[in-house]
Computed example of a mutant assay.
Amino acid sequence: MLPKTAVTPDTHTVPPATFSHGVRKGNILQVAGQVGFLPAEDGKPPTPAGPTLREQTLQALANVAAVLEAGGGSWEDAVMIRVYLTDTGHFAEFNAIWNDYFADLREAPAARTTVYVGLPAGLLVEIDALAVLG
């Protein structure tokens, strides 16, 4: 039986409930939903990167990337990415940010699902990922 390992980058705080920022089992790495919180500072509550979709999206992507890296992977290993937006009006802007961010991965990009949800006040986007490591 393959061991299951919790993955928490140094930049992340302890989750507010019993879950892991990432879990690796064999060559599978699941990254939990990451919002646009800035890297953790000792003793301070997490704060969003800013009020805009762009600021929060770029930070959420950086947070997912940090979990991928801590688990031994990268965006190249991501096969599925789920995006949770709070406003349907943000879809076009989000896609523009996404396309710029992943410009180098256009040949074989990960699959993506985007849904609309409610998130805590002030948060506009959450992103999770599933990676298969080589």
Results as ranks from 00 to 15, higher is better:
89 G>D: 10
1 M>Q: 10
83 V>P: 02
114 T>P: 06
50 G>K: 00
60 A>S: 13
28 I>F: 04
102 F>V: 02
12 H>F: 13
77 D>M: 03
73 G>K: 00
45 P>C: 08
32 A>Y: 00
133 L>C: 07
74 S>W: 04
130 L>G: 07
91 F>S: 14
106 R>T: 09
108 A>R: 14
110 A>D: 01
123 L>S: 03
101 Y>M: 01
86 T>C: 06
44 K>H: 13
26 G>P: 08
121 A>I: 07
2 L>V: 11
33 G>H: 08
1 M>T: 10
18 T>C: 02
84 Y>D: 12
115 V>F: 05
122 G>S: 14
13 T>M: 08
22 G>N: 05
31 V>H: 00
36 G>Q: 04
134 G>I: 04
123 L>I: 15
53 L>P: 06
86 T>Q: 08
110 A>S: 14
82 R>K: 14
60 A>L: 09
100 D>L: 07
26 G>M: 06
17 A>D: 15
53 L>V: 10
62 A>E: 13
96 A>T: 14
11 T>F: 01
88 T>F: 08
87 D>C: 04
37 F>C: 10
9 P>C: 07
28 I>K: 03
64 V>G: 03
113 T>V: 15
59 Q>M: 12
64 V>F: 01
44 K>Y: 09
77 D>L: 01
81 I>W: 00
90 H>T: 09
32 A>R: 00
115 V>G: 13
91 F>I: 12
55 E>K: 00
73 G>D: 08
33 G>R: 07
129 A>W: 00
41 E>T: 15
99 N>M: 12
20 S>Q: 09
42 D>S: 13
112 R>E: 12
90 H>G: 05
76 E>L: 07
6 A>C: 15
4 K>F: 11
79 V>F: 02
75 W>D: 09
109 P>Y: 05
24 R>N: 03
43 G>F: 04
120 P>E: 12
7 V>C: 03
17 A>I: 03
55 E>R: 00
111 A>T: 10
38 L>S: 04
113 T>F: 07
108 A>E: 14
65 A>C: 04
7 V>G: 02
39 P>E: 11
98 W>C: 02
25 K>F: 03
88 T>V: 14
27 N>G: 03
129 A>G: 05
12 H>R: 15
16 P>R: 12
119 L>K: 11
25 K>P: 00
59 Q>Y: 11
91 F>M: 13
111 A>M: 14
115 V>N: 12
122 G>D: 14
117 V>W: 02
127 I>P: 01
48 P>S: 11
124 L>Q: 11
105 L>W: 12
45 P>N: 12
103 A>F: 09
113 T>Q: 15
74 S>P: 10
41 E>C: 09
53 L>M: 05
22 G>W: 01
80 M>I: 12
62 A>V: 06
92 A>F: 11
116 Y>Q: 13
95 N>D: 12
